[in-house]
């Protein structure tokens, strides 16, 4: 019996030592894993954005874009996120929606600008989408819903428009797993606090969406892609209460009013 125990320890030790030795190698660099992942995401992102932008109208008005850009820049700079890596797009659409596409495309609908009551609510949504991008949720969702094989086919130039349409649909109008949504919510709160923006406004926005206003229900795509809004609003409030923050305005009130007015006019 002693011999068996000794030999068992021997095999376990051999496995552990082999694992330790293998771990000394930098496999990620050797196989260029990071570069491959990033190049795949880049290709998928560009393909999807090309397809999406061809079928939607992008707003290029400075009165609308610059204030959003200021909020985005403030969040990024306060959280050591490379602002230049995020590509901001404003789409002329009445739906209350915002979403992230691979390769750091952040898409906001003009309907969202109309729906939010203040810049802190808008910042919360932007922070939430940045969190999805930064935490690699977008590619994970795509791989899960569409499949790795289809994505590789897509990047090799063999993807058809049906696949692209399916991918866009998945990313724009279906929810992430609840755990990913919660992760993005909490990350967004962290981003907002570091940027001196009130995170409870984001909770208020979610709570309002969770109210399911029957008149506007069909317009609120962000509700369908971000379920359990009320519960999540409560969790955000609880999480925020544990943090110390000083809320400051990013935009002056005149700029905010112009943004709202211009968004309503679209």
């Amino acid at each position: 019996m002693d011999k068996i125990v000794f030999r068992l320890i021997g095999i376990v030790s051999l496995f552990s030592i082999s694992l330790w030795a293998a771990n000394q190698m930098n496999w990620m660099e050797l196989f260029g894993v990071e570069e491959n992942i990033s190049s795949t995401e880049q290709k998928v992102g560009e393909l999807l954005w090309e397809f999406y932008s061809a079928n939607n109208t992008e707003v290029t008005k400075d009165d609308l874009l610059l204030p959003i850009d200021s909020i985005l820049t403030k969040i990024c700079e306060s959280n050591s996120i490379e602002r230049d890596e995020i590509k901001l797009h404003l789409i002329n659409n009445d739906e209350v929606n915002a979403f992230a596409l691979p390769n750091n495309h952040l898409v906001i609908y003009s309907g969202l600008l109309v729906a939010v009551k203040n810049e802190a609510e808008l910042s919360g949504v932007i922070g939430h989408e940045i969190a999805h991008l930064q935490m690699d949720h977008v590619m994970k969702k795509l791989v899960k819903e569409i499949g790795l094989a289809v994505i590789i086919t897509m990047t090799s130039g063999n993807g058809n428009s049906q696949v692209l349409l399916e991918s866009i649909k998945t990313l724009t109008s279906s929810a992430y797993d609840r755990s990913l949504e919660e992760e993005a919510d909490f990350k967004s709160v962290d981003y907002l606090i570091k940027a001196d923006i009130d995170p409870t406004a984001f909770a208020n926005f979610l709570y309002t969406l969770g109210g399911n206003n029957p008149d506007a229900e069909e317009l609120m795509s962000w509700v369908s892609t971000h379920p359990y809004s009320k519960e999540r609003a409560e969790e955000i409030v609880n999480y925020s209460q544990k943090k110390n923050y000083k809320a400051k305005q990013v935009l002056d009130s005149a700029t905010w009013h112009i943004l709202k007015k211009e968004a309503e006019r679209l």
Binding site: L19, W27, M28, V33, K140, V143, L180
Partner: peptide, 18 residues
Amino acid sequence: IIFGDESVSNHYISYLFV
């Protein structure tokens, strides 16, 4: 890694190698 929250890491490739 394919369907969940994990991502490819040096530990994972080392484990696969062994």
